[in-house]
Measured scan of single mutants.
Amino acid sequence: MDLSALRVEEVQNVINAMQKILECPICLELIKEPVSTKCDHIFCKFCMLKLLNQKKGPSQCPLCKNDITKRSLQESTRFSQLVEELLKIICAFQLDTGLEYANSYNFAKKENNSPEHLKDEVSIIQSMGYRNRAKRLLQSEPENPSLQETSLSVQLSNLGTVRTLRTKQRIQPQKTSVYIELGSDSSEDTVNKATYCSVGDQELLQITPQGTRDEISLDSAKKAACEFSETDVTNTEHHQPSNNDLNTTEKRAAERHPEKYQGSSVSNLHVEPCGTNTHASSLQHENSSLLLTKDRMNVEKAEFCNKSKQPGLARSQHNRWAGSKETCNDRRTPSTEKKVDLNADPLCERKEWNKQKLPCSENPRDTEDVPWITLNSSIQKVNEWFSRSDELLGSDDSHDGESESNAKVADVLDVLNEVDEYSGSSEKIDLLASDPHEALICKSERVHSKSVESNIEDKIFGKTYRKKASLPNLSHVTENLIIGAFVTEPQIIQERPLTNKLKRKRRPTSGL
């Protein structure tokens, strides 16, 4: 017993010596996670971090007073192994002897410093981030199933929210409404489509400006004509009531908005009720001829604005009016007729031209339509002016008669200019590109209106002035400009410049 007691005391002394060697000089306990400095002193990692955080910048070693920084600290694995072995020896000594260790306080702390507990403390002390800490805590505590279930439920809930957000973003663009038309193969669909197009076009005519009305009406008319041609002859009974509906809707729209509806009346003529396609083609032919005449008058307007600064050229074209007008009339009417003589009366030419125009518009179905009313009214106005011209010709002399006839021709041009508003800008460009020769010939008609105004002003003063002067240069210039014009009389060319000069002198006297 005595020997055993001596041996136990010796073992205890050895353990105490080893414990003092492996103590931390700051906390005076076994080193936890030993860290060595540049001066080869060993301290606990937790104690050194606490010391360095007390001051900004480098701190001093507690043993040798040298500078220490966080970067200079290094882990010493050898001392950590020695500490672990010492703890194992102490545990074995207690089991063999059955005696508690003399320094129970220190031993209890040593026992608490088992490797499992050290790992837990290291995970908390090290600044490795929240995710690494959570992982280490889960690994160190596998015995708690409640914690695992809560963490898994949190992760699953987070994943569910992310997935639901993604699915919502994908589903939202798919919620856009999609309209699908289910059509049938019955023959009544074509008639319904035609009526739908006509009503939609009328609404567009009321909303859209004048520049786009003609294009819309032309497209709708083409669509309706194609649909009529596709149907068989057996379905004509269905077409006639639908066309009557079209007429009623167009008349109502014309009564409500007459000014807006006139812009599309000329282009919509071939959508009118037709028994066969031949009647629609004839109407299209007549409309094309009318559009040609209207576009020519538009060309004359532009030329008149350009040549208004040259009064000499405008005056020299006075007698070329009849010849150029004959050529335009021959090209406007498709019928083959002989040219009228140069010395014939211009009023007779106008009456013949009106007689040619009237039969074209005397179809029984055309008179029933609303768009032809505008053309009939313009023709009636022309006839009224010609009836007035006959009365004026009986009273005035030959020279005054010529000037009045020219004035009436200008009035006719004004009437025809009203129809110019109905034609589109695209048709003007096509006419100029296809028929430049006709445009040059028809330019002379509009330029002549300037000389007509001068004659009217001469009649106000009650006299006409003449001068025997020749202007050969002007006649040559005008002959080169206009290709299809005829030779003019030299006496009238000489008379016109004198009248304008005298007018300039006598205007201030009349004002006084």
Results as ranks from 00 to 15, higher is better:
D2F: 01
D2W: 10
L3K: 01
S4E: 12
A5N: 11
L6N: 04
V14A: 05
N16K: 07
A17P: 00
M18K: 00
Q19R: 12
L22M: 04
C27V: 00
E29T: 06
L30W: 00
V35P: 00
C39N: 00
C39D: 02
I42F: 10
I42Q: 12
C44D: 04
C47W: 01
C47T: 01
M48I: 07
K50S: 13
K50N: 15
Q54I: 01
Q54P: 14
S59V: 15
S59E: 13
D67G: 13
K70S: 02
E75C: 01
S80P: 03
V83P: 07
E84R: 11
E84A: 07
I89K: 00
I90A: 03
D96G: 01
T97S: 02
L99M: 01
E100M: 07
Y101Q: 04
S104C: 08
F107M: 15
E111I: 13
N113T: 07
S114K: 15
P115C: 08
H117C: 01
L118Y: 00
L118N: 09
D120E: 09
V122Y: 07
S127E: 05
M128W: 08
A134S: 05
A134Y: 13
A134E: 07
S140K: 12
S140A: 08
N144H: 15
S146P: 06
S146C: 01
Q148V: 10
L156K: 04
L156I: 02
L156C: 15
N158P: 08
N158S: 12
T161F: 15
V162G: 08
V162D: 03
R163Y: 06
T164K: 13
T164R: 05
R166A: 08
T167M: 15
Q169R: 08
Q169V: 07
Q169F: 02
I171F: 05
I171K: 04
Q172P: 03
P173R: 07
Q174G: 09
K175M: 07
K175Y: 06
V178K: 02
Y179A: 11
E181S: 08
S184W: 10
D185T: 05
S186E: 11
D189A: 09
D189G: 06
D189F: 08
T190C: 14
V191I: 10
S217N: 14
T276K: 06
